[in-house]
Amino acid sequence: MSKVIVVTSGKGGVGKTTTSAAFASGLAAKGYKTAVIDFDVGLRNLDLIMGVERRVVYDFVNVINGESTLKQALIRDKRVDNLYILPASQTRDKDALTTEGVESVINELKEDGFDYIVCDSPAGIEKGAFMALYFADEAIVVTNPEVSSVRDSDRILGILQSRSRAAEQGGTVKEHLLITRYSPDRVEGGDMLGMDDIVEILSVPLIGVIPESESVLQASNSGNSVVLDEQSHAGQAYTDVVARFLGEDVPLRFIDVQPKKGFFKKLFG
């Protein structure tokens, strides 16, 4: 049975694309046949983050319009087996994605034996974001520890609960909260919302906390997903998210202030 997972947030720039790339790579690395679809029509970026930008020939909209087959448009990742990327179109036509078109692509992926279909949502609550979440079985709501991001996450949760196909059919989309760009030091200092507070406000089960990390920028610079960087705390945190998603019981890491090694440690440790 294949599953459709939307990575969404409402607010822009919180880490949806970074998460989609890492999550899809992580699932594929575990042996699941995974497709990740860029729904950000007009602002294609997933291909760049995943380092396949030079291999884009056809895109999502070409497939919907019958200008190419799905097989022709899917890009197979060269580093991770089982991983395929469907790039967004650069068209400025806001209506390029239709419900029927999106549905037919998702159905074809299911028929082709994909275990997981990850949908990287654009920001906002307009058509593109709606299309990305409409067919979802599960949702990863990406939130930064910051007031406007938390509020937007709440709005997107409301949309998932009322306007997704699952909701229309009387069911529910399984929700997961992912807090990204988390700085334990700033939480400790009292100028950043803590993870417990965010969970309390949104009341959605937490699937992970990704620390603010320089390695994310480095990974995107080089077009390697951050999960492939085994040294990176953010990468390790994403690996944990994938494990939890697959049902493993993995404790949270990188959520406390890292003890400063050095003088005091030598003195008292």
Partner: peptide, 22 residues
Amino acid sequence: KDTATLAKERLQILIAHEHADN
């Protein structure tokens, strides 16, 4: 009161209102 506590209180009030409006 630190700003994170303030943020939490403001969000709780705002979101409760928005849910009631919905």
